[in-house]
């Protein structure tokens, strides 16, 4: 290679590394600190339940009660077993402290699928097992739905990731917030763009889509049957490493809790 070519390449490399570090998205430290800090209103108390106890599907549910009254939010990870970012974040959220209300978390909803690191468990795609006007379609889905009915959430958030990006890649749905008619998916998408998507990754900006209430997805069923505000969050595998997917999923979770009054610090830092 000629010297000028080397120089040009070297210059680009140094420039890219420098601007990359300098312009790294800021996140939202204040919001995440509020989620992780116990706060001064007194200790939250955590209880656990075994869902589908003594079956292959047995999985743990965590219920974290804040010192003051407020809404109940349910967070699901691992409805698809190979979508690790949602599972990781849901596990992390079991250590969060809501300021008000009750935070209910199921990190490994389809535990067989999670253990096999596959999208679907033994009875197929769990997120198609909640049809309108019918019983849930599998034993796992019925066990999960029992827990949802018992906790009667005001908000449901289901954490996912797709291989591609909605709107860019025809068959994929990544970087999107699907939400029930009453839920504020638009505000969630805006806050995520502000916190986590730099301007020079325009394809990765979040899209919010109001979902019709008639589908067989868990968040749709919760919206339909219980009047909950339902969200399905999708990040993407496309050009994002594990750490970045986890950070976007973590911020989505914290923003949903803040939009619905479980966390006090809401606005972007």
């Amino acid at each position: 290679m000629r010297r000028r070519t080397l120089l040009a390449t070297g210059g680009v490399l140094v420039g890219a590394a420098t601007t990359g570090v300098v312009s790294d998205p800021t996140g939202n430290d204040r919001l995440l600190a509020a989620a992780r800090d116990p706060g001064d209103g007194g200790e939250a108390s955590t209880t656990t339940e075994r869902l589908l106890a003594d079956t292959d599907h047995e999985t743990t549910l965590y219920a974290i009660d804040a010192p003051s009254d407020g809404p109940t939010a349910m967070i699901f990870g691992g409805v698809h077993g190979d979508e690790r970012s949602g599972i990781d974040v849901a596990h992390e959220v079991t250590e969060w402290y809501p300021d008000a209300g009750t935070l209910v978390v199921v990190p490994e909803t389809d535990r067989v699928a999670v253990e096999n690191d596959e999208r679907e468990g033994v009875d197929g795609d769990l997120n198609r097992h909640f049809p309108a006007d019918e019983e849930p379609r599998s034993a796992l889905a019925r066990g999960v739905w029992d827990a949802v009915e018992r906790h009667d959430p005001d908000v449901v958030l289901d954490l996912h990731r797709s291989l591609g990006i909605l709107g860019l890649h025809q068959e994929y749905v990544g970087q999107a917030v699907f939400h029930s008619p009453g839920a504020d998916g638009e505000a969630l998408a805006d806050r995520l763009d502000d916190d986590a998507v730099p301007w020079y990754l325009p394809f990765h900006r979040f899209t919010s889509l109001e979902s019709n209430a008639s589908g067989p997805l868990l968040f749709q069923h919760a919206a339909r049957e219980l009047g909950a505000d339902g969200y399905l969050f999708e990040t993407t595998e496309f050009l994002l490493d594990r750490e970045t997917k986890v950070e976007m999923t973590r911020l989505a979770t914290a923003h949903v809790l803040s939009l619905h009054g479980l966390l006090e610090a809401g606005e972007s830092a």
Binding site: G15, S23, T244
Partner: peptide, 22 residues
Amino acid sequence: ALLVVPFALGWYDAALFSPLAL
């Protein structure tokens, strides 16, 4: 180099994406 190098850095580690990678 401008088209490939900054983008390759971001591919390697998303934190290294920069305006130059656009």
